[in-house]
């Protein structure tokens, strides 16, 4: 199974939130563990950093199951700071995914990673700055940004799927080149 395929599986675990009561049949932490495994399989500059970030996110995800109020919007200062760090770590680990992907598929340039990371950064910033805005304006901008982020998230999966196919083709080409040699 190639890097992109494992990342897609991991991301899908985070995408689907199907709950039976409080039990999530696709727990996020399993997705993160799969992503840690994906990073451990490749030799790339930021694979190790990505694996560390995904490991921390897996641990916070498990803590989130035990202490769900940690990820519910709250006024508890400690939980808010944990949520901020968690958000920033998520951006860092996505950047590592993009970076490793770029290294695997050299020459496959795309504007999407930069756009997606910029949007996530803006969203992170606005979520905490916007609370000082008028409530109506904050809620409208937050809703619009959420819709935009959802579209980007869907495209992110499509983006990974395309890259998975390219990685497959690349592996096959490398395989046939080795057998010819």
């Amino acid at each position: 199974m190639n890097f992109h395929k494992l990342i897609i599986i991991g991301i899908l675990f985070q995408f689907f939130d199907i709950n039976f009561g409080t039990f999530d049949i696709f727990p996020d932490f399993i997705g993160f563990i799969i992503i840690v495994y994906a990073f451990s399989k490749v030799e790339a500059q930021y694979a190790k950093l990505g694996a560390i970030c995904a490991t921390v996110l897996a641990i916070t995800s498990i803590i989130g199951i035990v202490q769900p109020e940690m990820f519910v919007p709250s006024t508890n200062l400690t939980f808010q700071i944990v949520a901020i760090l968690n958000g920033l770590l998520s951006i860092l680990y996505l950047s590592c995914i993009f970076s490793v992907s770029k290294e695997i598929l050299r020459g496959e340039e795309s504007m999407f990673p930069r756009l997606y990371i910029s949007l996530l950064l803006l969203f992170q910033l606005f979520t905490y700055i916007g609370i000082h805005f008028a409530v109506d304006l904050y809620e409208i901008i937050l809703l619009a940004t959420n819709v935009l982020l959802f579209c980007f998230y869907i495209y992110f999966i499509v983006f990974l799927w395309k890259r998975k196919n390219k990685e497959n083709r690349l592996s096959r080409r490398r395989g046939s080149k080795v057998s010819l040699d």
């Binding site: 200062l77 700071i81 901020i84 920033l88 950064l121």
Partner: peptide, 18 residues
């Protein structure tokens, strides 16, 4: 990116504290 993340984090925490 790490620098940007650090700046964003500081702004977020300052905003939360305020």
């Amino acid at each position: 990116l790490l620098l940007i993340l650090a700046v964003v984090g500081i702004i977020q925490i300052a905003s939360t504290l305020y």
